[in-house]
Design a binder for these strands. Structure first.
Lengths: 217, 217
DNA sequence: CGCTGATTTCAATCTTTTCTGAAACAATGC
DNA sequence: GCATTGTTTCAGAAAAGATTGAAATCAGCG
């Protein structure tokens, strides 16, 4: 019984003169979004739930979502929880209704800022930390002291290692360190960029992106 | 038998006085890279193969890779093929050796440009195409000829029809279109940005990114 | 409190993706 | 041609990941 509650948008198409086209457009959007999500390592269903909430603009309850997407209660609950964790969906309530409703962030830039923020936090930052640790493992073999650390200094390997003892091994380690430093430098740049993008004052970067993008198109 | 061919770096650690630390650092790098790859929708093994080739800097043959990563021949072959398709690994040969050797692109920025180029081509571009199609499905209901649309479909419908039957529906569709337009605009911006980054003259953006990144850190 | 209904959790199940290994397929040299 | 060495393909096996559904938990209310 609860599944056909009077939630407006969610169940409108069932009994009223339906706008079939709108419904189809929504469904295609949901499918597209889901496909893209799964290509980027996000569960398809989670992306679909988000797409549904975004494209309808209507806060919906768990039952609405279950019915519209034909998924189980558990799945819907899990997906919603994840979306809340990501900060792209928020809870709302209705007066005189004990159900929880969920609505998607409607501003596209804000939405992507949240996504970037979370992905950085979950994946890029740990990776960066690991890279630092790995770099430290071979720091003792640095030719020019620890200065190259953490700054991605691109030291061209010196040709003059006339160490007759183990030139190959040392040279190899030196190159290893150079590669790691370059990688670290790259990740630091990306990290800084993302912080700009993500920050509350990230509007500047948004504007820059828009201008850069427009100019190139 | 072929798996212990004398390929230098790949099998050095086995019999010679081994640089255990270097080997461990490489292994950790490979693991880190593999984990990150899988978080971004790339097969873990493929990422690991790439990591191995990148961090050693040494061109390696299929057998070297199989042994070092403990994977099957088929898997190694498939992963290498994919990496070649992505353009981050290239074939090399050695005089007097019929085997093929594979080496990773060593410049980090070039590498990421290749990755971005391929991902855009495979995922973002199709998504953008779908979004255009979806947008066209409801183009006839545009109130004011959507400026953000690219193909400029003419809306023949007069907006002031005063259909008293379904004002809500019209409003809903209008909002739907607005959301799609915002999404399209966002994707177009990202697309243009990526083209700048990816292009041969993409150095400009690389520089800009570096400066922006540095400034914010 | 304990009832009612909403929400979360989680082991079992199902689906999708990845991996293997051996056979088919080149390419090279004799 | 044909033996030899190296590469690719692909059907089935294995692993990883997603989904279900029912039981446990929680929250408001009389």
């Amino acid at each position: 019984m609860a599944s056909e509650s009077a939630t407006g948008a969610a169940s409108r198409g069932a009994g009223d003169p339906p706008d079939v086209t709108l419904r189809q457009a929504q469904d295609r959007f949901i499918a597209t979004w889901g496909k893209m999500g799964s290509a980027w390592g996000i569960s398809r269903t989670m992306a679909e739930v988000h797409a549904l909430l975004f494209i309808t603009g209507q806060p919906m309850c768990t039952d609405d979502i279950m019915e519209r997407l034909q998924i189980s209660r558990g799945n819907a609950s899990m997906s919603l929880r994840s979306l809340l964790d990501w900060g792209v969906v928020s809870r709302t309530h209705r007066r005189g209704d004990r159900k929880e409703y969920f609505g998607a962030e409607q501003d596209v830039w804000t939405m992507f800022r949240a996504i970037v923020r979370e992905r950085m936090k979950r994946e890029a930052d740990p990776t960066l930390a690991s890279l630092y640790e790995i770099r430290d493992m071979t720091a003792h073999l640095d030719a020019a002291g620890g200065a190259a650390r953490a700054q991605g200094k691109k030291s061209r390997r010196s040709k003059s290692d006339a160490h007759e003892s183990a030139p190959t091994l040392e040279a190899t380690t030196e190159e290893h360190n150079r590669r790691l430093d370059e990688m670290l430098s790259f990740f630091q740049t990306v990290h800084s960029l993302s912080e700009r993008f993500v920050s509350p004052t990230g509007r500047g970067l948004q504007l820059a992106a828009t201008i850069l993008g427009k100019a190139a198109s």
